[in-house]
Design a protein around this nucleic acid. Structure first.
Length: 470
RNA sequence: GCUCCCUUCGUCUAGCGGUUAGGACGCGGCCCUCUCAAGGCUGAAACGCGGGUUCGAUUCCCGCAGGGAGCGCCA
């Protein structure tokens, strides 16, 4: 049997990080087994579904590189099919029309809760023969009232539910739109889905879905319910935990490979291995090794992984990604050095591409002002000789390579009888406006001769204006 | 309230009856060093509680506690 999995998000918002993890595991399972992966948009909630959400989902999937073999399908394009299936069920008696009003149902549930029971539909319309005038009925499943259903879950083992605790789910709403329960089951069957891999918030829905499958006479797919991803504080992931929308990770300069690598280790492991290429993930992924417990999202570890990927990336590829990132963020980089050089200088000190862009602004643009504290500490009257000598020797330099620049700074330190740091720091502050940068010779080389000399002269003036130290 | 699920360092996890309970992130220390990093070495840090089963339980079973999910004409 050829494996076929699917990811079936509802377009009621952006694609969030938990959804990506679910999609990733389904995708991995399909790829590992040489099967196919389907994307299906479950847009039967016409109130909340939006076109913008569908686009956000497609963009998100494309960004992380989870490709699908079929789809995207949309349930709103399949309404005829659900209507047909529901009619067949009605004809066979596996479903029935229910005329209960919402108020009536609500009152019923309130009574049940008051009695300490699990609120559920009591089946009062099961045997009704005559329609109620003026009421558009819903269609409910006639589900078994005795016995039990067992979900054979790949990550949790067998989970049984008593049929007495389940009720007759609504298949079709009174306006003729299928419910989620009906839509998934019909679609999974029609599309030949063999393995349903989804969040464990659906575990409680599964026995109902099995009832529908049995009523339909279609095969029950293999189920695997994945543990949830919680926020760092152990509560349900939400905006206050930071970014939950995948596309925010793109905007913050995370690499999709790093994000996927982080996500795959949430609930899954392969011994002590932490870093997995896509190929390794596909090769090693095993649903049986998936943990059953929920896990918390740890931004620090994601950051560490992101830097690992930045560090290991091929320089021209990283440069291209960095350029794309700057373009996305509207950061101009035409006036700076080649991005390959920038990326090499900054990858060791950047967790994200955003960090890299932020840390390297002065190689692309002049800064507004030198950081006051840095100037106070490093551009004093005493540094005048240092700066003048550096300027003088750099002006005389025929070339502009890191090695010769380094020799100049070394020579200044020697001539003045001071340590290299006493030369490096003032120069760093003068040309970057701050105290942090890549090695000073690399930084000078990157910024370029003209800009460096200009900034050094300005810093010299500033230092000369300082009162002499006692 | 009812049903279902879960429980190893702060976090992600390894472990699948006998281990000095391993790795990773983060945190501390040391080294390297022109700043910041990166890197190397190193330290602190965990089996929720109570019963069983067993010669022996982190591991198997049962309770409890804690956490989570679901109980819609949402998905």
């Amino acid at each position: 049997m050829r494996v076929k999995t699917r990811f079936a998000p509802s377009p009621t918002g952006y694609l969030h990080i938990g959804g990506v993890r679910t999609a990733l595991f389904s995708w991995l399972y399909a790829r590992h087994h040489g099967g196919s992966f389907v994307l299906r948009i479950e847009d039967t909630d016409r109130e909340r579904s939006t076109e913008a959400s569908i686009q956000a989902i497609l963009t998100g999937m494309a960004w992380v590189g989870l490709d699908y073999d079929e789809g995207p399908f949309r349930q709103t394009e399949r309404f005829e099919r659900y209507t047909t299936v529901a009619a067949e069920m009605l004809a066979r008696g596996t479903a029935y029309r229910c005329y209960c009003s919402r108020d009536e149902l609500e009152a019923m549930r309130a009574e049940q809760v008051a009695r300490g029971e699990n609120p559920r539909y009591d089946g009062r319309c099961r045997d009704r023969q005559a329609p109620v005038a003026g009421v558009n009925p819903v269609i409910r499943l006639r589900s078994p009232r005795e016995g039990s259903v067992t979900v054979h879950d790949l990550v949790r083992g067998d989970v049984s539910f008593s049929n007495a605790d389940l009720d007759d789910v609504i298949l079709m709403r009174s306006d003729g739109v299928p419910t989620f329960h009906f839509g998934v089951v019909v679609d999974d069957a029609d599309m030949g889905i063999t393995h349903v891999i989804r969040g464990d918030d659906h575990l409680n829905n599964t026995p109902r879905h099995i009832h529908i499958q049995q009523a339909l006479g279609v095969p029950v797919p293999v189920y695997a319910h994945l543990p949830m991803i919680l926020g760092a504080d152990g509560t349900r992931l939400s905006k206050r935990h930071g970014a939950v929308n995948v596309l925010e990770y793109r905007e913050r300069g995370y690499l999709p490979d790093a994000l996927l690598n982080y996500l795959v280790r949430l609930g899954w492991s392969h011994g002590d291995q932490e870093v997995f290429s896509r190929e390794e993930m596909i090769e090693l992924f095993d649903i049986a090794a998936v943990n059953a417990a929920a896990s918390r999202f740890n931004p620090d570890k994601l950051g560490w992984l992101n830097q690992q990927y930045i560090l290991a990336r091929d320089r021209s590829q990283l440069a291209a990604e960095f350029g794309a990132f700057m373009d996305l963020r509207g950061l101009e980089h035409d006036q700076g050095p080649p991005l390959e050089q920038v990326v090499d200088a900054y990858r060791e000190r950047a967790v994200t591409l955003e960090d890299m862009a932020q840390a390297s602004t002065y190689v692309f643009h002049d800064f507004a002002a030198i950081d006051a504290k840095a100037a106070r500490q490093h551009l004093k009257a005493g540094t005048v000789p240092v700066l003048s000598q550096v300027i003088e020797r750099l002006e005389a330099l025929p070339g502009w390579q890191r090695e010769v620049i380094h020799d100049v700074l070394q020579a200044v330190a020697a001539a003045l009888g001071i340590g290299f740091g006493k030369v490096g720091q003032p120069v760093r502050v003068a040309i970057t406006g701050g105290t942090v940068s890549p090695p000073i010779d690399v930084t000078l080389q990157l910024i370029g001769r003209e800009r460096v000399l200009h900034r050094l002269r300005q810093a010299l003036q500033l230092a000369q204006a300082q009162p002499p130290v006692s």
